[in-house]
Amino acid sequence: MSDQDTGAEREVTLHYYDGSERKALIVDTEVPYPDGKLIVSRTDPQGFITHANQAFVDMSGYSREELIGANHNILRHPDMPAVAFKGLWDTVQSGQKWQGFVKNLRKDGKYYWVKATVIPNIRQGKLVGYTSVRRKPSRSKILESEALYATLK
């Protein structure tokens, strides 16, 4: 379990990059990443979800219907600094592969850590969207990321 797993509950207002906001319940309880699985999603060029595999549905706590068409920031956890996502978008928009550790927010307010890799999907030379594949992170990387992100908020 991570240091942030205290079981505490709070309601927060999440502020997104585009100026929108939503209220969300935050439960400081970690859900362990399932061994051997990859969590896969794809988005259109604007970051709206177009595909989610079963592991994504299971871990996020949302139904597939709720996920498809939603902005990918539906998973944004308030403990994640905005600068991490700016790095993600700057990297993939310049055509590069982005890799990083992300704390994700589930529908039930709990969280899970992933090691994510995001790449642009190029078809006939054109950008058609992005794919993200997550795998199980090591405990030491989670602790490192928790410490780092706390200083970036």
Binding site: L38, V40, R42, K97, I119, N121, R123, T131, S132, V133
Partner: peptide, 14 residues
């Protein structure tokens, strides 16, 4: 073709 491209994208991330 899209199924193939999807699989290749996925492998690229690995």
């Amino acid at each position: 073709e899209e199924q193939t491209e999807f699989m290749i994208d996925l492998i690229d991330t690995l």
